[in-house]
């Protein structure tokens, strides 16, 4: 679905991504973890086609949709309008199937998105991305600022979408959540992939455990 090869992104003289390679296969749940400033959001913007790489390749097969960090909803518009715009590139902008997937959005459909709670907003951001009927979903910092119970609910929802065949690249500071949810993971530090492997192996590695899971090495 996604194949990134030796990707280099620079902002002026600063190198944000320095030879990053990663893949997400069809239907796969992959995590990318790493600290603040590692280049995670740069990778997201490159995947979304919003910035031009200095070198390397990005290949996306099928439709890619993005749930951006901070949700970035259209706050003056209603939930339903936000969903409709998620399918801006598509001809069919019917929101009915999203209310089937995310039933808690239906009673909120006429509310301005800016008036919702953080968890509800994240659900709308997810719904907006699903409106594009994507084959692969890139989710940037889904759990940031949300209560654990809300995060769990969102994670359950992602698992269901995954069971329906959706591939997911989950970009998370919350490594515990990411490693629990995903089957494979990459660790990004200072613009480079410093570790990769199955989520179980990474969770078991002393370096990852110490740096990201808050456990003693």
């Amino acid at each position: 679905m996604i194949r990134v090869e030796d990707l280099v992104v620079r902002y002026g003289a600063a190198t944000a991504l320095d030879g990053v390679s990663l893949t997400v296969a069809a239907g796969e749940l992959v995590a990318l973890i790493g600290p603040n400033g590692a280049g995670k959001s740069t990778l997201v913007n490159a995947l979304a086609g919003l910035l031009r790489p200095a070198a390397g390749k990005i290949r996306v097969d099928g439709r890619l949709a993005l749930v951006p960090e901070g949700r970035h909803l259209f706050t003056p518009l209603t939930v339903d309008d936000n969903l409709r715009l998620g399918a801006w590139r598509a001809k069919n902008r019917d929101t009915g199937h999203i209310y089937e997937l995310l039933p808690e959005l239906e009673p909120l459909s006429r509310r301005p998105a800016g008036r919702l709670s953080g968890g509800q907003q994240q659900m709308v951001a997810l719904g907006r991305a699903l409106m594009a009927r994507p084959d692969v979903l890139v989710i940037d910092e889904m759990s940031l600022g949300l209560a654990p119970l809300v995060v769990r609910h969102l994670a359950d929802n992602l698992r269901e979408r995954h069971r329906d065949g959706l591939a997911v690249l989950l970009i998370e500071q919350n490594a515990r959540l990411a490693l629990e949810l995903c089957t494979r993971a990459y660790v990004l530090e200072a613009g480079r992939i410093v570790a990769e492997g199955s989520a179980a192996d990474l969770a078991g590695s002393p370096q990852v455990a110490a740096a990201y899971l808050g456990l003693e090495a």
Partner: peptide, 13 residues
């Protein structure tokens, strides 16, 4: 309206 409200999100969709 979406463009006015959040140009970044508008580009994303």
């Amino acid at each position: 309206t979406a463009t006015a409200a959040d140009p970044y999100a508008a580009r994303i969709v």
